[in-house]
Structures are given as C-alpha cells and as structure tokens.
C-alpha cells in the first residue's frame, strides 16, 4: 500500500485526513449530483423549447 505523507513537512494529522476524505466525498457527490441534475433540467428545457419552436414553425 502506498503512503502519501512520507515527504510532507507538515503533520497533516490522521483525524484531518480521515475527515477530509469523508467530507470531501459527501460534498463531491452532492456537487456532482447537483451538476447532473442541472444538466438534465437544461436538456429537458432545450428539448421542450425546440419542440415548441418546431410546432410554431409547422403552424406558420
């Protein structure tokens, strides 16, 4: 297993490493999820607006 902190001059602290991996993962998933959700909404909106434009063109 690889050890990350063998060349660190600063003691990162075991507790700090553990908490950053946990908090970071939770926040990372939340940010990723929010971005995906935003993309989905954006896509849905663009599909809806495209079909609305097509409909208007068809009607004219």
């Amino acid at each position: 297993m690889e050890s990350w902190n063998v060349i660190a001059y600063l003691d990162a602290g075991t507790g700090s490493i553990i908490i950053q991996s946990v908090v970071g993962a939770v926040a990372g998933v939340a940010v990723f999820g929010r971005r995906m959700f935003g993309n989905l909404i954006h896509k849905a909106k663009s599909i809806t607006s495209r079909s609305a434009t097509t409909q208007t063109t068809d009607e004219s």
Binding site: M1, W4, G13, G15, I17, S21, G24, A25, A27
Partner: peptide, 22 residues
Amino acid sequence: YDSAKKDSSSTRKVSSLAMNGL
C-alpha cells in the same frame, strides 16, 4: 484518531471527486 496507536490515514485515498468537493 490523532493519538490512536494505529495510523489509519496513510493508505486512505482522497479521490479527485472528494478533493473538488472539499
């Protein structure tokens, strides 16, 4: 964990997703 006898942090990964989240 800081004064625990066993260092459980040396092999713990912080993925790039977690780093960005942090």
